[in-house]
Design a protein around this nucleic acid. Structure first.
Length: 268
DNA sequence: AGTGCGACCCGAACGC
DNA sequence: TGCGTTCGGGTCGCAC
């Protein structure tokens, strides 16, 4: 699933491949993927140069001379760079044609969304989506989290998934960050010690950096899969041995999400 | 204001 | 084997 790391990989790919290049043509094969009216969407993108590629949390913003094309991939959204003559896949729903290649938006579950906004609407957009600070922002301190969590008698896992505190953490990385921090996902956010909170910050940076180095857990625009999935400590490992203590990893539904953790390393 | 839950979707995994 | 059922993932909107 594209979480912060995976969207960051796409951002780096796109910066290399499409920044400064012109979109000659856009085709929309399924209207519901696009928030705007299809005609407006197409008319405003065609013949524009790509001026920026920005990521905020799990959101991607492609600057187009006064506009941003905003994309959220949700679960299965993907972008692929393909040759002019490549055939369309059944789940290719939006296709951008450049001079020498095409960029396909592919989404087997139809959860992803895209829209264009005016460049000066970016700040309001971010505010409206209630995006918190980035994992590498210097404002991210244990004091910041303490203030944010003080009123929340709710499991820490749920707080990590809430994009309004630290933005960009999804289900996979939330489990990994809590394992590295030796914190039970059900521990109440407002009960965590300063040490717990600084561990969460430290391990968010550590896990994201390690994953970025392996190109994440998802596909890049060339269709190549990152290899961080093989290094996950708990996520999707129920019934297997904990790499640290040898007891069995368990899976439970916490905050409505499948949650994987080690019952010994992550005691309440 | 804070919290919880269903809707959105459909391919994959599971159960019989 | 084949068919029906359940699950999952992030975000939004609504109910309490």
């Amino acid at each position: 699933m594209p979480e912060l790391v995976e969207v960051e990989i796409l951002k780096r790919n796109l910066t290399k491949e499409i920044l400064g290049k012109k979109i000659n043509k856009v085709e929309v094969f399924l209207d519901k993927i696009v928030y705007n009216k299809k005609e407006y969407f197409i008319k405003n993108i065609e013949n524009k140069l790509v001026t920026d590629v920005i990521r905020k949390g799990k959101w991607l913003f492609i600057g187009l001379e006064g506009l941003f094309l905003v994309i959220h991939f949700r679960m299965e959204g993907r972008l692929f760079l393909k040759n002019m003559k490549d055939l369309y896949d059944r789940h290719d729903y939006v296709v951008f044609t450049f001079d020498k290649f095409k960029l396909y938006y592919n989404d087997s579950r139809l959860f992803g969304k895209m829209e264009i906004i005016k460049k000066d609407q970016l700040d309001d957009f971010v505010k409206d989506k209630k995006l918190g600070i980035e994992y590498d922002d210097e404002l991210l301190t244990s004091k910041y989290l303490k203030n944010k969590f003080v009123k929340h008698h709710v499991g820490i896992k749920k707080m990590l998934l809430d994009q309004s505190y630290i933005t960009g953490i999804g289900n996979i990385y939330a489990d990994e960050i809590l394992f590295e921090s030796k914190i039970n996902p059900r521990n109440y956010a407002n009960d965590l010690s300063n040490k717990n909170l600084s561990d969460i910050i430290k391990n968010t940076k550590k896990v994201f950096a390690a994953s970025l180095e392996k190109n994440g857990t998802y596909l890049d625009i060339y269709g190549k899969r990152g290899t961080f999935e093989q290094l996950l400590m708990v996520h999707k490992r129920q019934g297997e041995k904990c790499y640290k203590c040898g007891s069995l990893i368990i899976k439970e539904k916490i905050g409505g999400r499948g949650t994987y953790y080690c019952p010994i390393c992550q005691k309440m």
